[in-house]
């Protein structure tokens, strides 16, 4: 099957924005945590410890990392679809709680009742973790509505994929967001495949940054494999939304290395395509190379960091393996709130 060339066009600034060394290191750490966490989740799925669906974020780490770094943590709201583990880790949710939710244990963020696709945190302003493709676009617009209604100055960051970008409610949301100048940034994580259907086979136009054109919503196509580009574009978009100019669209050109979910046969794309991304565009390797080049980090210091992250992930996995399943009485709790 013929595939589109790997090279992606990028319409953002020709000059690559710089991050400080400290920011680079932070980005490296966050992305590595996601990568190692997801690898472990994949392994635990293989061992039968995680059930049902499990959508890994491997390859797309720069997107949520760059955006979150550009946001105000604890103030700006984030909401995404079902490929959500990375979002939670970067937003500061406890890796143990995330992993224990994946294994369906009582210490999981949703007490084992949500699973991989349904985790939330009012404290961190993370609103899921949504399993219905495209629903988060409307919900995220609602978070922005609440922000404007209360006048709290927060911005809503609503992520969805290239697949969801063809859902009707996304455009209903674009319309209202622009009409009411709601502070929302729509982040389209274009990883080229809606499950197993390539964007060329599913979308009449594949420049998703322009999907808001008929609502006059500005959009940018961004190299989502380069955390510097993501951060820079996100700063611009968030500032636009926060200053009362309404919504903004960021199309993140990214790539997932793993299948759509764990049971993905991956027959719809070539091995070469995946390999090329991993070898030439990997978001983590890019930062690592720069850190070593500037001398801000050494092989040795990065190794130490790596083992710190491995320890976090191992601790999360151990917790998620040994934590008990929810008490049977949990079956009947949290259905409604007693008034």
């Amino acid at each position: 099957m013929a595939r589109k060339a790997v090279a992606t066009k990028v319409k953002t600034q020709p000059n690559v924005p710089e991050l400080t060394n400290e920011q680079e290191l932070e980005a490296y750490r966050e992305m590595l945590l996601i990568r190692r966490f997801e690898e472990k989740a994949g392994q635990m799925y293989g061992m039968g410890l995680i059930g049902g669906f499990c959508h890994l974020y491997i390859g797309q780490e720069a997107v949520v990392t760059g955006i979150t770094m550009a946001s105000e943590k604890g103030k700006d709201a984030q909401i995404t679809g079902y490929r959500d583990h990375g979002h939670m880790l970067v937003m500061g949710l406890d890796p143990k709680g995330v992993m224990a939710e994946l294994t369906g244990r009582s210490g999981g963020l949703s007490r084992g009742k949500g699973g991989s696709m349904h985790m939330f945190s009012n404290e961190h302003r993370f609103y899921g973790g949504n399993g219905i493709v495209g629903a988060q676009a409307s919900l995220g617009t609602g978070l922005a509505f609440a922000s404007k209604y209360k006048g709290d100055g927060s911005v809503s960051l609503a992520y969805f994929g290239d697949g969801a970008a063809n859902q009707g409610q996304v455009y209903e949301s674009f319309n209202m967001a622009k009409l009411w100048k709601l502070p929302v940034v729509f982040i389209i994580e274009n990883n080229k495949y809606a499950m197993g259907t390539s964007i060329e086979r599913s979308s009449a136009t594949t420049d998703f940054s322009q999907r808001g054109a008929s609502f006059d919503i500005p959009g940018e196509q961004v190299d989502g494999m380069d955390v510097r580009m993501v951060y820079d574009a996100a700063k611009r978009a968030i500032e636009h939304a926060r200053s009362g100019n309404g919504p903004y669209i960021l199309e993140m050109l990214t790539y997932r290395y793993r299948g759509h979910s764990m049971s993905d046969p991956a027959k719809y794309r070539s091995k070469d395509e995946v390999t090329k991304y991993r070898q030439e565009r990997d978001p983590i390797e890019q930062v690592k190379a720069r850190l070593l080049e500037t001398g801000f980090a050494t092989e040795e210091s990065l190794k130490t960091l790596e083992s710190e992250i491995r320890a976090i992930v191992t601790e999360a996995a151990d917790f998620a393996t040994n934590d008990p399943e929810p008490d049977a009485a949990e079956l009947w709790t949290d259905i409604t709130i007693e008034a």
């Binding site: 409307s138 978070l143 209360k150 009707g168 209202m176």
Partner: peptide, 21 residues
């Protein structure tokens, strides 16, 4: 007043409720 957009405004309202309205 909303546009004629039930799916969208119902979802928007749910999101607003998540955020405390």
């Amino acid at each position: 007043d909303t546009p004629i957009t039930e799916h969208g405004f119902a979802g928007l309202a749910v999101g607003a409720a998540f955020a405390g309205l």
